[in-house]
Amino acid sequence: MSKFKKLVDFKNWQKSTKTVAMVILAILVVIFVLSSLNVSEQDMLRNASPEIEQIIEDEKTSSRKSLTITYNDLGVISYISFTTSGASALKESYVGFAGGIYGADEGGWKFAGQMVNYTYRMLGTGENLLHGVKLTLLLTTLSMIIGAIFSVFLALGKISENKVISKLSSAYIFFFRGTPLLIQMFVIYFSVPGIFGFAWRSLFAAGDPEAVYKGAFIAALIAFSLNAAAYCAEIVRAAIQSIDKGQNEAAKALGMGYGQMMRTIIIPQSIRRMIPPLCNEFVMMIKDVSLVFAISLMDITTISKTIMTSEGNYLVFIPALLIYLVITAVFTFIFGKIEKRLSIYE
């Protein structure tokens, strides 16, 4: 309750908080205004030239569809293009912004239109979770969580006094840190099913046209989790070992068992020290996700490369960089908050 009061009592906010709040509010207002002015798909479609209209009309009855209509709506700005395939490709595109519709075949509007289209494709908007940004976020978050939990056991195993457990854990960590993630993923996706006689896609319904991608995602998730566990284990181990030996002795002198001591004394204290290196690991992993192109999945990097291949336009890398930057910034912020929250006792 007191927290809520503190939140409402904005007169006493810090000056920097006030500034940030004002900026966010201003951005929200602009977004609201722009999105209410955004042009609808129908309006955009009506803009097509008679030539395009004719093609649309012709293709209603023919079996070969050469025209692709692309409509991308990013909320505040939208883009539509009519492109025909084949040797004599025809292209017509428009950008809808703040209530107006502008031809986007050249100049600044062309650039804006391309940026909208590229961003839209890399965000994987309108597609399921296995595309673009969503894939990147899902794969990194899930494998980081699974890996981090597993890594605690690995780290405890490595510092264990039991020689067998310690050696096994060290061997695991050495193996997964000492070999490339790409190859690990290949082994899990290609070799493991080959050896054990199953297919990743058979984990899903036979009639599911996306079963291949889902199967590949599961394989990637396993590879990334196993790999993350090895890297996180070293972080966890270092953090545990950085805790003062006196803590260990005090817990022992109070009669706590090893498990109790780790669970309530050592690990809670070491978590705070793990956060910055774990954040680094997370950011590294966001970039590593691009390796999934090798097993048929399309993340941000893969989509940008595909666009580069089909359109030969290097500008695609600008939104790609920006998207990565935003993701990294958001997660760095979150990790920073967690670290701060865990530091209250210092």
Binding site: G246, Q247, E249, A250, A253, P268, Q269, Y345, E346
Partner: peptide, 13 residues
Amino acid sequence: MGMVFQRFNLFPH
């Protein structure tokens, strides 16, 4: 046996 250490060794968290 209860023990008191030179450096206190309280649990800081």
